[in-house]
Amino acid sequence: MRDQIAGKEIMVTYCSVCRTGRVFDPIVDGHPETFRLVGMDHFNAMFEDSRTGSWWQQANGEAIAGPSKGSQLPELDSYQLTLGKFFELFPQGKVMDADPSFLSKYDSLGKYEFGKSKSKLTGTDSLSWKEKSWVVGIRVREKSKAYDWNDLKSIGTIHDVVAGQPVALILSEDQQSFKAFLRIDVTQSIERLPGDFLSVGKDTLDFRGASIHTGEQVLYPIYAYQEFWHSWRTFNPQTEIYVP
């Protein structure tokens, strides 16, 4: 899906078979580009650009065939939030209207969103570390690590170290929204308070990691993705696995 934010072109993508959401800057070799869906590779959506005819993987924005092979689409920051949490954090935000012609299909995705779909391709395994289990993947300094969604739901806040960098993964009270942040050091502890406020030392932050008193960004978010385990493992073959 193409859109503009503050005059900047963006391309919002999603693959339901991998459960991968990515937002890219649709620029190829310095030129704005349009894309069309042409199939799947490793069960991941594949796009073809209109100018060079190169094929691009949705999970990582890499061209794997055609003149642009080896090139990478720049990824833009994005976070998984419920609509309620989005408007709580961004009260002036906007949501693209649903296409009335596809309302019945939107409605049918409810089971998928809550992990209750039984489809062979898009169904969820409620157990941990199965092909269709949910994980949250984090990348830091070209290193990657996977966190079991069941563990995150049980623990709520996970403090860890990835590529030598202290991080924190925090699940919202709504059990769907989540954020990952860099920590200053391994001694810095983050506690989720009622209302999804975050306690860091003597400061209280909102779920974006900004101080509610000064508005200053105290915690800096990092890329974190909820997807099926088979997808994260395929596109991050050297990934580590978090063990509580």
Rank of each mutant, 00 (worst) to 15 (best):
20 T>Q: 12
237 P>H: 03
48 E>V: 13
223 Y>F: 05
40 M>R: 11
31 H>C: 12
157 T>N: 06
59 A>N: 08
168 A>T: 08
81 L>K: 07
218 V>Q: 03
195 G>C: 15
63 A>F: 04
121 L>F: 04
21 G>W: 14
238 Q>Y: 01
95 V>C: 10
48 E>K: 01
155 I>N: 07
122 T>S: 08
206 D>L: 03
82 T>M: 02
103 L>I: 15
62 E>Y: 07
56 W>M: 04
222 I>P: 04
95 V>H: 08
92 Q>Y: 11
4 Q>L: 08
36 R>W: 06
207 F>Q: 04
216 E>R: 11
115 G>T: 04
181 F>K: 10
82 T>S: 06
50 S>V: 05
6 A>Q: 15
101 S>Q: 09
127 L>G: 14
235 F>Y: 14
8 K>P: 01
43 F>R: 09
42 H>V: 15
161 V>F: 05
182 L>D: 05
87 F>C: 11
137 G>M: 01
222 I>T: 11
18 C>R: 07
178 F>T: 11
103 L>M: 11
44 N>T: 07
155 I>T: 10
97 D>E: 10
14 Y>M: 00
117 S>C: 02
21 G>L: 13
41 D>C: 11
16 S>M: 12
129 W>I: 01
70 G>I: 06
231 S>C: 15
194 P>H: 09
132 K>N: 06
150 N>Y: 03
195 G>F: 06
198 L>V: 10
216 E>K: 13
176 Q>D: 07
156 G>L: 00
60 N>M: 06
222 I>L: 05
153 K>M: 11
101 S>G: 12
185 D>E: 04
19 R>W: 07
131 E>V: 11
81 L>T: 09
100 P>G: 01
75 E>M: 04
179 K>L: 09
61 G>V: 08
223 Y>T: 11
135 V>H: 00
137 G>E: 01
98 A>D: 09
131 E>A: 15
81 L>P: 04
148 D>T: 08
33 E>Y: 02
70 G>D: 07
144 S>F: 00
50 S>T: 10
239 T>A: 15
228 F>S: 05
147 Y>E: 10
217 Q>N: 01
158 I>T: 05
89 L>S: 13
104 S>H: 15
123 G>S: 06
221 P>I: 04
80 Q>W: 00
45 A>K: 02
11 M>H: 09
33 E>D: 05
214 T>G: 02
242 Y>Q: 01
135 V>M: 00
119 S>M: 05
174 D>F: 01
148 D>F: 12
103 L>A: 10
198 L>N: 10
58 Q>V: 08
183 R>N: 08
168 A>F: 12
188 Q>L: 10
22 R>W: 00
